[in-house]
Amino acid sequence: MKTNLFLSFVFICAVSAAAQIKIIHKEKISVPSSEQWFQAQYSPSGKDIYLTNSGYNGIWKYSGKNKTLTKITEDPGSGYNFVVSQNEQQIAYRRTFQEPNSLQRSQEVVIKNLSDKSERIVASGEDIQTPVFVADNVSVTNLRTKKTILPSVKTSQPVVLGIEDQKISLLKKGKKEIFDPLKNGRYIWPVLSPDGSQLAAVDMDRGAFIADVNGTNVRRLARCNAPSWTRSGKYVIGMNDIDDGHVIIGSDIIAVSADGKQRINLTETENGLELYPHCSPTENKIVVTTSDGEVYVLTYEEE
Protein backbone atom coordinates (compact mmCIF):
# COMPACT_ATOMS: atom_id res chain seq x y z
CA MET A 1 0.00 0.00 0.00
CA LYS A 2 2.88 2.27 0.76
CA THR A 3 4.07 1.90 -2.82
CA ASN A 4 0.66 2.63 -4.22
CA LEU A 5 0.33 5.73 -2.11
CA PHE A 6 3.67 6.95 -3.35
CA LEU A 7 2.72 6.26 -6.93
CA SER A 8 -0.49 8.11 -6.40
CA PHE A 9 1.37 11.10 -5.10
CA VAL A 10 3.63 11.17 -8.12
CA PHE A 11 0.75 10.71 -10.46
CA ILE A 12 -1.54 13.42 -9.18
CA CYS A 13 -0.79 16.35 -11.34
CA ALA A 14 -0.73 19.95 -10.43
CA VAL A 15 -3.66 21.74 -11.91
CA SER A 16 -4.41 25.38 -12.03
CA ALA A 17 -6.26 27.07 -9.25
CA ALA A 18 -9.20 27.54 -11.58
CA ALA A 19 -9.54 23.84 -12.25
CA GLN A 20 -12.77 22.35 -11.04
CA ILE A 21 -11.91 18.73 -11.57
CA LYS A 22 -8.76 16.97 -10.49
CA ILE A 23 -7.42 13.52 -9.81
CA ILE A 24 -6.98 12.78 -6.12
CA HIS A 25 -6.04 9.15 -6.21
CA LYS A 26 -4.69 6.54 -8.55
CA GLU A 27 -4.83 2.81 -8.01
CA LYS A 28 -3.41 0.04 -10.12
CA ILE A 29 -5.78 -2.84 -10.66
CA SER A 30 -4.15 -6.17 -10.00
CA VAL A 31 -4.68 -8.23 -13.12
CA PRO A 32 -2.33 -10.80 -14.65
CA SER A 33 0.30 -9.45 -17.00
CA SER A 34 -0.26 -12.34 -19.38
CA GLU A 35 -2.50 -10.11 -21.50
CA GLN A 36 -2.06 -6.57 -22.82
CA TRP A 37 -5.26 -5.16 -21.31
CA PHE A 38 -7.11 -2.73 -23.49
CA GLN A 39 -10.11 -0.42 -23.29
CA ALA A 40 -11.47 -1.13 -19.82
CA GLN A 41 -15.03 -0.06 -19.07
CA TYR A 42 -17.32 0.04 -16.06
CA SER A 43 -20.43 -2.05 -15.74
CA PRO A 44 -23.72 -0.09 -15.60
CA SER A 45 -23.73 -0.30 -11.81
CA GLY A 46 -20.12 0.79 -11.64
CA LYS A 47 -19.27 -2.15 -9.44
CA ASP A 48 -17.26 -4.17 -11.94
CA ILE A 49 -14.78 -3.48 -14.70
CA TYR A 50 -14.88 -5.25 -18.05
CA LEU A 51 -11.68 -5.67 -20.05
CA THR A 52 -10.49 -6.89 -23.41
CA ASN A 53 -7.00 -7.42 -24.81
CA SER A 54 -5.14 -5.54 -27.51
CA GLY A 55 -6.46 -7.88 -30.19
CA TYR A 56 -10.05 -7.60 -28.95
CA ASN A 57 -10.04 -11.37 -28.70
CA GLY A 58 -12.02 -11.92 -25.53
CA ILE A 59 -13.87 -10.28 -22.66
CA TRP A 60 -12.93 -10.48 -18.99
CA LYS A 61 -14.80 -9.26 -15.93
CA TYR A 62 -12.93 -7.82 -12.97
CA SER A 63 -15.08 -7.97 -9.85
CA GLY A 64 -14.82 -4.83 -7.77
CA LYS A 65 -16.06 -6.76 -4.79
CA ASN A 66 -13.89 -9.89 -4.93
CA LYS A 67 -10.93 -8.41 -6.84
CA THR A 68 -11.00 -11.44 -9.10
CA LEU A 69 -10.84 -11.77 -12.84
CA THR A 70 -13.21 -14.00 -14.79
CA LYS A 71 -13.06 -14.77 -18.49
CA ILE A 72 -16.43 -14.29 -20.17
CA THR A 73 -15.43 -15.33 -23.69
CA GLU A 74 -12.41 -15.58 -25.94
CA ASP A 75 -14.33 -15.24 -29.19
CA PRO A 76 -12.39 -13.41 -31.93
CA GLY A 77 -13.23 -9.74 -32.08
CA SER A 78 -15.64 -9.98 -29.16
CA GLY A 79 -13.87 -7.28 -27.14
CA TYR A 80 -14.73 -4.47 -29.53
CA ASN A 81 -17.75 -2.41 -28.48
CA PHE A 82 -19.37 -5.13 -26.37
CA VAL A 83 -22.25 -4.00 -24.14
CA VAL A 84 -23.56 -5.10 -20.74
CA SER A 85 -27.26 -4.90 -20.05
CA GLN A 86 -28.56 -2.50 -17.42
CA ASN A 87 -29.52 -5.38 -15.17
CA GLU A 88 -26.03 -6.84 -15.70
CA GLN A 89 -27.52 -10.24 -16.48
CA GLN A 90 -26.43 -10.27 -20.13
CA ILE A 91 -23.55 -9.23 -22.29
CA ALA A 92 -23.86 -8.74 -26.04
CA TYR A 93 -20.99 -8.74 -28.47
CA ARG A 94 -20.05 -9.38 -32.07
CA ARG A 95 -17.61 -12.08 -33.06
CA THR A 96 -15.85 -12.26 -36.43
CA PHE A 97 -14.51 -15.24 -38.33
CA GLN A 98 -12.05 -14.34 -41.08
CA GLU A 99 -12.17 -16.70 -44.04
CA PRO A 100 -8.71 -18.12 -44.74
CA ASN A 101 -7.01 -16.76 -47.88
CA SER A 102 -9.92 -14.45 -48.53
CA LEU A 103 -11.27 -11.00 -47.94
CA GLN A 104 -14.52 -12.59 -46.84
CA ARG A 105 -15.62 -12.98 -43.25
CA SER A 106 -18.67 -13.92 -41.27
CA GLN A 107 -19.93 -12.11 -38.21
CA GLU A 108 -22.34 -13.10 -35.47
CA VAL A 109 -23.93 -11.10 -32.69
CA VAL A 110 -24.10 -13.11 -29.52
CA ILE A 111 -26.01 -12.56 -26.30
CA LYS A 112 -24.47 -14.33 -23.38
CA ASN A 113 -26.22 -14.92 -20.10
CA LEU A 114 -23.74 -14.05 -17.39
CA SER A 115 -25.37 -16.34 -14.85
CA ASP A 116 -25.82 -19.63 -16.65
CA LYS A 117 -23.25 -18.90 -19.41
CA SER A 118 -25.71 -19.79 -22.13
CA GLU A 119 -25.47 -17.90 -25.40
CA ARG A 120 -27.71 -17.11 -28.31
CA ILE A 121 -26.82 -15.91 -31.78
CA VAL A 122 -29.17 -13.10 -32.62
CA ALA A 123 -27.74 -11.95 -35.93
CA SER A 124 -25.21 -13.09 -38.49
CA GLY A 125 -23.88 -11.93 -41.82
CA GLU A 126 -20.92 -10.29 -43.47
CA ASP A 127 -21.36 -6.74 -42.23
CA ILE A 128 -23.10 -6.55 -38.88
CA GLN A 129 -22.87 -3.58 -36.55
CA THR A 130 -21.87 -4.15 -32.92
CA PRO A 131 -25.02 -4.48 -30.74
CA VAL A 132 -26.50 -2.07 -28.23
CA PHE A 133 -28.95 -2.63 -25.40
CA VAL A 134 -32.15 -0.66 -25.42
CA ALA A 135 -33.75 -1.21 -22.04
CA ASP A 136 -32.19 -4.64 -21.81
CA ASN A 137 -33.27 -5.58 -25.32
CA VAL A 138 -30.68 -5.91 -28.05
CA SER A 139 -30.70 -3.72 -31.13
CA VAL A 140 -28.45 -4.53 -34.05
CA THR A 141 -28.00 -3.18 -37.57
CA ASN A 142 -27.15 -4.97 -40.76
CA LEU A 143 -24.81 -2.43 -42.31
CA ARG A 144 -25.19 -3.87 -45.78
CA THR A 145 -28.98 -3.64 -45.89
CA LYS A 146 -29.12 -0.69 -43.46
CA LYS A 147 -31.90 -2.47 -41.63
CA THR A 148 -31.95 -2.13 -37.86
CA ILE A 149 -33.83 -4.41 -35.56
CA LEU A 150 -35.41 -2.17 -32.97
CA PRO A 151 -37.07 -3.43 -29.82
CA SER A 152 -40.67 -2.46 -29.37
CA VAL A 153 -39.96 -0.69 -26.11
CA LYS A 154 -39.36 3.05 -26.40
CA THR A 155 -36.91 4.87 -24.19
CA SER A 156 -37.19 8.42 -23.04
CA GLN A 157 -33.55 9.16 -23.76
CA PRO A 158 -31.85 8.73 -27.14
CA VAL A 159 -29.50 5.81 -27.67
CA VAL A 160 -26.40 5.71 -29.90
CA LEU A 161 -26.87 2.78 -32.26
CA GLY A 162 -23.43 3.14 -33.83
CA ILE A 163 -21.74 4.49 -36.94
CA GLU A 164 -23.53 4.04 -40.25
CA ASP A 165 -21.92 5.29 -43.47
CA GLN A 166 -19.53 7.36 -41.35
CA LYS A 167 -22.46 9.17 -39.69
CA ILE A 168 -23.88 8.74 -36.20
CA SER A 169 -26.96 6.57 -35.94
CA LEU A 170 -29.26 7.54 -33.06
CA LEU A 171 -32.41 5.98 -31.71
CA LYS A 172 -34.76 8.81 -30.72
CA LYS A 173 -38.27 8.19 -29.57
CA GLY A 174 -38.24 4.72 -31.04
CA LYS A 175 -36.99 5.83 -34.46
CA LYS A 176 -33.59 5.63 -36.07
CA GLU A 177 -32.11 8.97 -37.06
CA ILE A 178 -28.85 9.77 -38.85
CA PHE A 179 -27.10 12.50 -36.91
CA ASP A 180 -24.62 14.78 -38.73
CA PRO A 181 -24.19 17.93 -36.66
CA LEU A 182 -20.99 19.13 -38.43
CA LYS A 183 -22.47 18.57 -41.92
CA ASN A 184 -20.53 16.10 -44.07
CA GLY A 185 -18.96 14.82 -40.91
CA ARG A 186 -17.16 11.51 -40.55
CA TYR A 187 -17.57 10.46 -36.97
CA ILE A 188 -16.15 8.08 -34.43
CA TRP A 189 -16.56 7.57 -30.68
CA PRO A 190 -20.08 9.06 -30.28
CA VAL A 191 -21.24 9.10 -26.66
CA LEU A 192 -24.31 10.66 -25.05
CA SER A 193 -24.28 12.67 -21.85
CA PRO A 194 -25.90 10.98 -18.81
CA ASP A 195 -29.09 12.97 -19.30
CA GLY A 196 -29.12 12.27 -23.03
CA SER A 197 -29.24 15.94 -23.98
CA GLN A 198 -25.75 16.25 -25.47
CA LEU A 199 -23.49 14.15 -27.58
CA ALA A 200 -19.69 14.13 -27.70
CA ALA A 201 -17.85 12.60 -30.63
CA VAL A 202 -14.79 13.00 -32.84
CA ASP A 203 -14.84 14.06 -36.48
CA MET A 204 -11.96 12.59 -38.48
CA ASP A 205 -10.78 15.88 -39.99
CA ARG A 206 -12.08 18.38 -37.43
CA GLY A 207 -11.40 16.83 -34.05
CA ALA A 208 -13.65 16.36 -31.03
CA PHE A 209 -16.86 18.30 -30.40
CA ILE A 210 -19.98 18.43 -28.27
CA ALA A 211 -23.37 19.16 -29.73
CA ASP A 212 -26.86 19.29 -28.38
CA VAL A 213 -28.69 16.17 -29.35
CA ASN A 214 -30.88 18.18 -31.69
CA GLY A 215 -27.77 19.03 -33.69
CA THR A 216 -27.30 22.60 -32.55
CA ASN A 217 -24.85 24.40 -30.29
CA VAL A 218 -21.72 22.69 -31.60
CA ARG A 219 -18.64 23.23 -29.43
CA ARG A 220 -15.23 22.26 -30.84
CA LEU A 221 -12.87 20.58 -28.37
CA ALA A 222 -9.69 20.01 -30.46
CA ARG A 223 -8.13 16.66 -29.58
CA CYS A 224 -10.15 14.72 -27.03
CA ASN A 225 -10.18 11.13 -28.23
CA ALA A 226 -12.27 8.26 -26.89
CA PRO A 227 -14.54 10.66 -24.93
CA SER A 228 -16.52 9.56 -21.89
CA TRP A 229 -18.92 11.69 -19.82
CA THR A 230 -18.50 12.12 -16.10
CA ARG A 231 -21.61 11.00 -14.24
CA SER A 232 -22.45 14.61 -13.46
CA GLY A 233 -22.49 15.49 -17.13
CA LYS A 234 -20.28 18.51 -16.43
CA TYR A 235 -17.19 17.18 -18.17
CA VAL A 236 -16.11 15.03 -21.03
CA ILE A 237 -13.05 12.97 -20.19
CA GLY A 238 -10.84 11.99 -23.12
CA MET A 239 -7.31 11.22 -24.12
CA ASN A 240 -4.86 13.59 -25.76
CA ASP A 241 -2.72 11.04 -27.55
CA ILE A 242 0.23 12.28 -29.58
CA ASP A 243 2.03 10.29 -32.24
CA ASP A 244 4.81 10.70 -34.77
CA GLY A 245 2.86 9.07 -37.57
CA HIS A 246 4.03 5.58 -36.62
CA VAL A 247 3.66 5.11 -32.89
CA ILE A 248 2.00 6.86 -29.96
CA ILE A 249 4.66 8.89 -28.19
CA GLY A 250 2.55 10.49 -25.48
CA SER A 251 -0.92 10.46 -24.02
CA ASP A 252 -2.60 12.11 -21.08
CA ILE A 253 -6.12 12.10 -19.78
CA ILE A 254 -7.90 15.42 -20.14
CA ALA A 255 -11.21 16.90 -19.06
CA VAL A 256 -13.17 19.38 -21.13
CA SER A 257 -16.11 21.21 -19.65
CA ALA A 258 -19.44 20.59 -21.32
CA ASP A 259 -19.51 24.15 -22.61
CA GLY A 260 -16.16 23.50 -24.28
CA LYS A 261 -14.50 26.47 -22.61
CA GLN A 262 -12.33 24.76 -20.02
CA ARG A 263 -9.70 22.16 -20.84
CA ILE A 264 -7.80 20.54 -17.99
CA ASN A 265 -4.96 18.05 -18.05
CA LEU A 266 -5.77 15.43 -15.47
CA THR A 267 -2.51 13.51 -15.86
CA GLU A 268 0.96 14.56 -16.87
CA THR A 269 2.76 11.29 -16.39
CA GLU A 270 6.21 11.21 -17.94
CA ASN A 271 6.74 7.47 -18.16
CA GLY A 272 3.26 6.18 -18.80
CA LEU A 273 0.72 6.65 -21.54
CA GLU A 274 -2.83 6.64 -20.17
CA LEU A 275 -5.37 5.70 -22.77
CA TYR A 276 -9.09 5.07 -23.30
CA PRO A 277 -10.69 6.60 -20.21
CA HIS A 278 -14.11 5.35 -19.18
CA CYS A 279 -16.08 7.06 -16.42
CA SER A 280 -17.99 5.20 -13.80
CA PRO A 281 -21.73 5.90 -14.06
CA THR A 282 -22.08 5.79 -10.29
CA GLU A 283 -18.85 7.11 -8.75
CA ASN A 284 -16.22 9.75 -9.38
CA LYS A 285 -13.90 7.23 -10.94
CA ILE A 286 -12.25 6.75 -14.32
CA VAL A 287 -10.74 3.49 -15.47
CA VAL A 288 -7.86 3.73 -17.96
CA THR A 289 -5.47 1.30 -19.60
CA THR A 290 -1.88 2.15 -20.40
CA SER A 291 0.30 1.54 -23.43
CA ASP A 292 1.92 -1.27 -21.44
CA GLY A 293 -1.42 -2.99 -20.95
CA GLU A 294 -1.89 -2.11 -17.29
CA VAL A 295 -5.18 -1.00 -15.74
CA TYR A 296 -5.62 1.93 -13.37
CA VAL A 297 -8.55 3.52 -11.60
CA LEU A 298 -8.35 7.27 -11.14
CA THR A 299 -10.50 8.90 -8.49
CA TYR A 300 -11.42 12.48 -9.23
CA GLU A 301 -12.87 15.32 -7.32
CA GLU A 302 -15.34 17.55 -9.06
CA GLU A 303 -16.21 20.90 -7.52
Partner: peptide
Amino acid sequence: SLTARWQFANANN
Protein backbone atom coordinates in the same frame (compact mmCIF):
# COMPACT_ATOMS: atom_id res chain seq x y z
CA SER B 1 -4.44 10.48 -34.47
CA LEU B 2 -3.30 6.92 -35.04
CA THR B 3 -5.91 5.71 -32.57
CA ALA B 4 -8.63 7.59 -34.44
CA ARG B 5 -7.61 5.95 -37.71
CA TRP B 6 -8.05 2.37 -36.62
CA GLN B 7 -11.12 3.35 -34.64
CA PHE B 8 -12.55 4.75 -37.88
CA ALA B 9 -11.95 1.41 -39.60
CA ASN B 10 -13.49 -0.48 -36.71
CA ALA B 11 -16.49 1.81 -36.37
CA ASN B 12 -17.29 1.38 -40.05
CA ASN B 13 -16.70 -2.39 -39.86
